[in-house]
Each structure stands twice: as C-alpha cells, then as structure tokens.
Design a protein around this nucleic acid. Structure first.
Lengths: 208, 208
DNA sequence: ACAAATTGTTTGGTCATTCAATCAAAGCCA
DNA sequence: TGGCTTTGATTGAATGACCAAACAATTTGT
C-alpha cells in the first residue's frame, strides 16, 4: 500500500499544518498524525517544503472539484455561450461560500505566503498559485469588458489583479479576525465592480 | 547611552528582519548587526516577538511622517474643508509611491502577518495594524459616500475593507513578483472606485 | 558604593535530515 | 510447493546543527 501511505502522510500534513502552522510543526508531528515512523515522511518527501506544497495541492482539490461542478475550471477557457456578467456574480457568491467551507485552506495558504517571502522554493509555488488565480479572474474580467457600453481605461489584467487582490485582502481580514464581516466586504466589492461594468455610455462631458 | 542603544537594536532588527525574515533571523544576528552582545537584545526586549513588533513600528515611522506631511494622519479625523474625492485620489497616488519607497516595510509586514497566523501575541499586533488602516480608509470612504448622487447599498466599512484589502493584495503580488505591474493594478482600482463614487443619479429602471 | 548597562557563556531544548537495520512482498528457479 | 533473492517500504535511533532565553560576571556611570 505505498500510494495509500503517501496519501495518508499528505493528509496528515495538511491537518497538522493547518492546526499548528509550518514553523511550529515538525516532521515528527506529521508522521505521528499519520501513524507512521518519522523517517517515512522523508522517504516520500525530500524536504518539509515539498510536503507543504503537496499538502496545499491536496487541500485545494475539494475546492477545485466544487468549481468544476459549477461549470468553471481554473485553467480552462470561459464557456462561449454564457453571460460573463453571470460568471462574475457567481464568482463573488462562490467566494463567499468558500470562506465558510475552506477556512483551514486559506489559513494554510497564507502561511505558505509567509514562508515564501524568504524561501525560494516556496516562493516559486506561491507565484504559480497567485498567477493561476489571477489569470482565472482575468478571463472573466476580459469577457465582461468586451460587453461594456463604456470601455474602461485599465486592462483586464490590471482589474483582475485589483479584484483578486481585494478578495485575498478580505480573506486575510477574516482569517485574522473571525468577527470581521467578510460577506459584507465581498458584497461591497461586488456592488462596485458590477456597477462599474454596467455603467451606461457616457453621453457628454470632458475627456479624462 | 541607553535609549540610543535600544534604538540601535531596533534599527538593526528592522534591517536584519527585512533581509532574512523572522524565522531565519536569530537574536544573535540582530545583536551582531547592532554591534552589541547577544544578551543585550534580551535586556531591552523580553522576547523576539516584542522585537518584531518594535521593528515594524520603527519601520512605519517614516511612512507616517510622509502622510502627516501630506496633511493626513492615520488616527486623526478628516479635515472638514477638503474635498473627500481629492483625498481618495491622493490616497491612491500615495499608495503607488509607498510601494516604490517602502518595499522592505511591506515585506516585513507580510512576514508579521504570516507569523501572526499561529502566534497570539503577533496576531494581536496584526489585528491592530489592520484595524488602524481599515478605519483610515473607512473615514475617507464615509466622506465620499456622503457626497454621492446615488448612494451605495453597502456600508462605508464594507467598502473600506474591500479597498484596503485590494491594496494589500496588490502589494502582495508585487512583493512576490517584482515584474508585477502594481501601479496599473492600483490605477484600475482607482478607476473603478472613482467611477462608482461619481456615478450619476439613477433616473429610471427597476430596483435591485 | 550603588544601580544600570553590557558582556559572553550556558542551558535546555528543538528540529530537519541521514542512516543502518528490519520487514514485506513479489518474482525466480528447482 | 518451497527455498532464494531482490526490491521497495518502513522503522527508530543518531547526527549535527541551531536557537531563545537565562544567567553570572564585568564594566560603566553617578
């Protein structure tokens, strides 16, 4: 049962890392949680960093599956026939749901961001992680822009960076303070972006 | 020269922590950078955590001074006479400048966020840090909302959380990837918020 | 003298990683 | 079927290094 064992270790790593954090968790803790000898974790994963990356990928799987069940995929193209505004609205709704169901994953992700600040291997994983999600938002944003009556000045990529960034910042505030009303913040972001995307064509006035 | 020594240690801590990160920096490294014996750091700061908090406060001072020179203070009230929209525009411009001048401070701040995820003392400092800045954005936002022709649905606090969050998220993307065009992202955020704040009164249509 | 400042070592513990040894399973040959 | 071997899986202890914090001793300033 080699694959099963590896899976057990990754799952134990996910749970332990979420609960205690990267720097506060030892390989021994993870091995113990998996019910396995300390050395075995290093048999499957050369370094603790590798195990962190594997644990996050493991933790992302349910979320990815939920998205694909909703008809979107992180890396795939936008469906041609659908209304892009509907995707945008749905995206914000999904963001609110995720916060309720995947709090542990966000915690671990933020931990990874912190580690990545001074760890090249993790930094590389973080850049890929961010780029994937930003590109996903950019695809929706691009489709929305195409349908705008009054086209914006900034690029789809720039809006995507601002919107993904806002969601990230809102998640952070929620993780650091459970009292924080993240749903209201996402609603505000949603209200602002949708109003902007659906604003009427400018009929008069000066350029700027 | 007791106060001067303490200052030297805090400054050395700031530089070392920015360069190497919290978990990768030892008290000995900081003491060595300050040109002081290892024990002295603990004479002035009981724990490494305290030193991290002090280092960040120390690093924030120049930024605070720059703000107050521009006529705004983090904790003070909004000037009554000024145009709130002008403050908003200026805030986004200042945000772009900060990224160029205070990259190290952002790096250390994000490091603190990461540590705070599983460290109660640092977590408390992080919550205060976020709350201060969010409240600052909220004051500007509130003043802007008062002057809006078409008032928004969400509260000033919710918009502030979304806007501060977006700036934070943009900074993160910049810190993790120097190629990232943070100015364009802030411009996009600025375009969106200002268009939203200055949208005309709705003359017809259904409620939503 | 007295207190504060400063030193440099010791303490007590942690942890990632390595390693030699054991165990289990699967093939191979008679 | 039964012994033999090889390979991979698994163990648990050892290695080697690091570090925050405590402490006793020394210096400095008043």
């Amino acid at each position: 049962m080699p694959d099963q064992t590896k899976e057990r270790i990754v799952d134990a790593a996910y749970r332990t890392l979420v609960k205690r954090g990267y720097h506060e968790t030892g390989m021994k803790d993870i091995a113990a949680e998996a019910g396995v000898a300390p050395g075995l974790a290093h048999y499957y994963f050369e370094t603790k960093e590798d195990l962190l990356v594997a644990a996050i990928e493991h933790g992302c799987q349910p979320l990815m599956r939920a998205w694909e069940a909703a008809g979107v995929s992180l890396s795939g193209p936008m469906p041609e026939d659908a209304d892009p505004m509907m995707f945008a609205r749905m995206g914000f709704e999904l963001a609110k749901e995720e916060l309720k169901s995947y709090g542990g994953l966000f915690l671990l992700t933020f931990d990874m961001f912190g580690v990545g600040l001074h760890n090249p291997k993790i930094a590389s994983a973080v850049r890929i992680f961010i780029e994937e999600r930003r590109a996903f938002v950019a695809r929706i944003t691009q489709a929305v822009i195409v349908g705008m009556a009054e086209p914006p000045l900034a690029s789809a990529g720039a809006f995507a960076a601002a919107i993904w960034g806002s969601l990230h910042g809102i998640y952070l505030q929620k993780v650091m303070d459970p009292e924080f009303d993240a749903e209201a913040a996402i609603d505000a972001l949603s209200e602002m972006t949708i109003a902007f995307a659906t604003r009427p064509r400018r009929t008069s006035g000066t350029e700027g």
